[in-house]
Design a protein around this nucleic acid. Structure first.
Length: 512
RNA sequence: GGCGGGGUAGCUCAGUUGGUUAGAGCGCGGGACUCAUAAGCCCGAGGUCAGUGGUUCGAUCCCACUUCCCGCUACCA
């Protein structure tokens, strides 16, 4: 069986600074990457920045900067964000890198050689900020300016020679591909959208521009710059050293296991990208998952509404793990989700401080006071103990399977249930009343520690920093975390002494 | 206009291949305890499962219509 797992985030377009949507995609991707690693997979996790195109060129001009210099600066903010978010990415690719350029040029040449690309002429209303053409009826006039009805962005008349990709001829092969790979597009509702779009007919796609220069030149015609999406999507293989197809990275990790993206760029990933690849005779990725947006209150965040929550500011105030936990747990994956300071604070207090943090604290403090942090010995499980521990075995396959279809809510709910169960266990067993019965006392404490260990391992992909802090109690290091070990109930028997921990999450004082 | 998804407790959402008292978390009210971050545990209040009609012995779950929300897509002009 294939033991490799390749996951990607979108490469981010650095025309502005990072926002919550970027953080969300990245955190989720990191969750999957970390989970698959502790499950025993060889994981390659890629993120990066998409730096070409007219929008960037104009943004740079506006600031009086060279495009490359401009990109260097903003790309760095995304690179820094990947650190702040505690991403475990293996690589950070920039489309302005030489390795990427070579890869795109190669892909272009193949498409050209296979007659998938031809030179023609395009004219129409073009929006720079949308990177899209609009037909006459898709635009309207507002304040003497022509704008797109759909996005409201300004359009300009463009008439130019352009290379076209023969997208139309891939309509049937794509539909065949979708039906042969029913889980290629998830969630299901998005898949239906894509299929109905493709069924509606595909037009050939303009894949070059003459009107600006910031991009990768068409190898056979330097007047043209390669279309940003053809350029950008290729990052997923250029990072694996394509076109060196016998390279170890490429051989191990292509086709990608999962492109995790926002729903707004689904078409590029689910239609154009597999079409380019099929045309070049490259296997398309195994899955594209289009997640929802993070909203603030009921509305999409926007500067004018002043409801923007800056991920960096949130992390500054609350820490990275609370934000990761909130986004992963509180958002119904695939749907749009909400975030507000109020909800985040509630979540931190009840889930992280009261349930998880306090569980660790009460157990460890108890052991410190009664056993001087010695590992409880001579334990002997009774029915109640076994029942509590066995839940992990019984649900193991469900947990693994749910992650494989990106059903992270099942996974998180299971953790919730087990946190409750562990707290209840400690309550019901009342170790403070069993100080005379040392065997029973030891057993209760041992079981409680096992539960903390299991829960902390399951939490590792979500809140890695905190999880590692807790696992330190048992001297478990990151490289030794094994998801499969949640099925084991006597994994702590060789440990002699426990390490004390401090408060994991401080409660937030609510002032209202 | 077409296609698709959805309207379930104050809030965020599960769920039911149709079957006696519809679930969780948060919030709210009460209780017993004390190891713990006044945390945790127990009990409770709160829902005409959008509306109407139909199929059925029986519908929140199936069907039709209505209405509202969301997504994708098209078009008249």
């Amino acid at each position: 069986m294939d033991n490799n797992f390749y996951i990607t985030t979108p490469i981010y377009y650095p025309s502005a600074k990072p926002h919550m949507g970027h953080a969300y995609s990245s955190i989720l991707a990191d969750f999957f990457a970390r989970f698959k690693r502790i499950q025993g997979f060889k994981v390659y996790f890629l993120t990066g920045t998409d730096e070409h195109g007219q929008k960037i060129q104009r943004a740079a001009e506006k600031k009086g900067m060279e495009p490359k210099k401009f990109c260097d600066e903003i790309s760095k903010t995304f690179f820094d964000l990947s650190k702040t978010l505690n991403l475990s990415n293996n690589d950070f690719i920039r489309t302005t890198e030489e390795r990427h350029k070579k890869s795109v040029e190669h892909l272009w040449k193949i498409l050209e050689k296979k007659n998938e690309i031809y030179l023609s002429k395009y004219s129409g209303w073009y929006s720079v900020s949308d990177e899209a053409f609009y037909s006459e009826d898709e635009i309207e006039i507002k304040d003497t300016k022509k704008i797109s009805k759909i996005s409201g962005s300004q359009v300009e008349w463009v008439e130019e020679e352009s290379f076209f990709f023969k997208l139309s001829k891939w309509q049937e092969p794509l539909l065949k591909f979708y039906s042969e790979n029913p889980n290629f597009i998830l969630p299901e509702s998005r898949k239906n959208e894509v299929i109905s779009f493709v069924k509606g007919g595909l037009k050939d796609l303009s894949v070059s521009r003459k009107s600006f220069s910031w991009g990768i030149k068409v190898p056979s015609n330097k007047d043209h710059v390669i279309y940003v999406w053809l350029d950008a999507l290729t990052n997923y293989i250029s990072a694996l050293n394509y076109p060196i197809t016998d390279d170890n990275l490429y051989k191990s990790f292509w086709p990608a296991s999962l492109h995790l993206i926002g729903k707004d760029i689904l078409r590029f990933h689910a239609v154009y990208w597999p079409a380019f690849l099929l045309a070049a005779n490259i296997t398309p990725p195994k899955r594209v998952y289009g997640h929802g947006w993070i909203l603030s209150g009921e509305e999409k965040m926007s500067k004018s509404k002043g409801n923007i929550l800056d991920p960096l500011e949130i992390i500054q105030n609350y820490g990275i793990d609370p934000l990761r936990y909130y986004l992963i747990k509180e958002v119904s994956f695939g749907n749009d989700g909400n975030i507000s300071k109020d909800k985040l604070e509630n979540c931190i207090n009840s889930d992280l401080a009261n349930n998880y943090g306090n569980l660790c604290q009460r157990v460890i403090s108890f052991i410190e006071k009664n056993l001087s942090l010695e590992m409880p010995k001579n334990y002997k499980f009774n029915n109640e103990d076994t029942k509590t521990l066995k839940v992990y075995e019984n649900n193991f396959n469900n947990l693994v399977n749910s992650i494989d279809i990106q059903n992270i809510n099942f996974y998180v709910n299971f953790i919730q249930d087990q946190l409750f169960s562990a707290n209840k266990y400690f309550n019901d067993q009342e170790p403070w009343k069993k100080k005379e019965d040392t065997d029973r006392l030891n057993t209760i404490l041992y079981v409680s520690l096992e539960l903390i260990r299991k829960i902390s391992i399951m939490l590792y992909p979500i809140i890695p920093d905190t999880s590692l802090k807790v696992l330190k109690i048992f001297n478990i290091e990151e490289k030794n975390i094994d998801f499969n070990s949640i099925k084991v109930h006597e994994s702590l028997k060789n440990i002699k002494k426990l390490t004390k921990i401090s408060i994991l999450f401080k409660k937030i004082e609510k002032n209202d």
